[in-house]
Design a protein around this nucleic acid. Sequence first.
DNA 1: TGTACATCAGTGAACGCGCGTTCACTGATGTAC
DNA 2: TGTACATCAGTGAACGCGCGTTCACTGATGTAC
Lengths: 203, 203
Amino acid sequence: VKKSEETYHHGDLANALIKEALRLIESDGPDAFSLREVARRVGVSPNAAYRHFSDRDALIRAISERGFATLLEHMRRSIADVKASTPRLRAIRCLKATGRAYIEFALTNPALFRVTFGAHTVLPNSTSSDAAHDGDPYSVLSSSLDALVEVGALPKPRRPGAEVKAWVTVHGHASLALSRVDLQTSDMIERVLDFVVEGLGVV
Amino acid sequence: VKKSEETYHHGDLANALIKEALRLIESDGPDAFSLREVARRVGVSPNAAYRHFSDRDALIRAISERGFATLLEHMRRSIADVKASTPRLRAIRCLKATGRAYIEFALTNPALFRVTFGAHTVLPNSTSSDAAHDGDPYSVLSSSLDALVEVGALPKPRRPGAEVKAWVTVHGHASLALSRVDLQTSDMIERVLDFVVEGLGVV
DNA sequence: TGTACATCAGTGAACGCGCGTTCACTGATGTAC
DNA sequence: TGTACATCAGTGAACGCGCGTTCACTGATGTAC
């Protein structure tokens, strides 16, 4: 992987293309993306990409998946960092951590965020709702809401539909913050997280 | 305007281009937009557009402005239709009407919604907050929140920051509903509107 | 009311560009014996 | 350990395409007298 510059065979071209595509998109916007430009930046001929992706769309899909994975990882780390003296406090802070991670991800990777939640993205479905495995961002959110119920911080009757309420609010803040600097301060972020907690009826 | 098909001079080309651009975007997605394609559909040579728009970007900007205007009109009409027996109920329903109009606008004109709130859009600023004139969607929201305070439905201390909370939530629902059919039902829309009202602390 | 002429709003052809994708190819690598 | 050969992962040239934009133009319209 390290001496890849020298060899005829790149070694890890698929990953290199995705990485470079991310950098390109992040610096010049989602519209600047093109297969040729990415190949150019990696230092490879345009059609080399076709060894790894069937076409332009396949590369975009790979980028989008990378986005989901990054978001998921960020949420997990954010939850892992939570410190609290009581289970109730811990559950509340974990919920807020998921939302904070989501918004921070958007602000740190604005273009990737747009691609990930772009027009053609099929989002994870809420139907697979026994979300014990936490394989995607939505499941992580579900679990943290379940935890709130378990510790008695969220009345059971208020549990249904809580995912959508939380997600919608956090997603809206993340989206709008991309073009409104006044929403980017951590103060405003904490405010919306508090709004979610309140609105859900956490006691 | 009616016999425009016959004449050499179109008569209202600027408007015709915007209208056709909207139709194109709505049927084939924002990426399908091109100056040439729009001109082609209007039945005019590609460069005729340059009589009315300095370049491609100017046309896009015009489309985006049209989007804001349509949204604003839709919100106003939605408010005008509100019926209520008490001032308090009226104020609450007006707030919900603005949100409903916003979401309905997004669902009715998904591509326009994306363009209007796209990457390069500068959104109205909350600094011009003596919003008595209601010249943009944000001001309409502000006014309806003021009305809630006036009738005593919203405690004054809860007023600050209410715009952002409401807007963010509604915008998030609108955005996500574009790719999630399960959020498109009027049931889910009413649910998120109730969530906003509750979360704001309306009594 | 009629005419001269400036101005307006379109045409048609052409430009250079970067794109996605395909083709026939070749250098590097891994494997069987 | 050495060699033959299949396979893998890249190259380089070319394609057709639609794009935004510019050029010199012309037909239609409005205005001054």
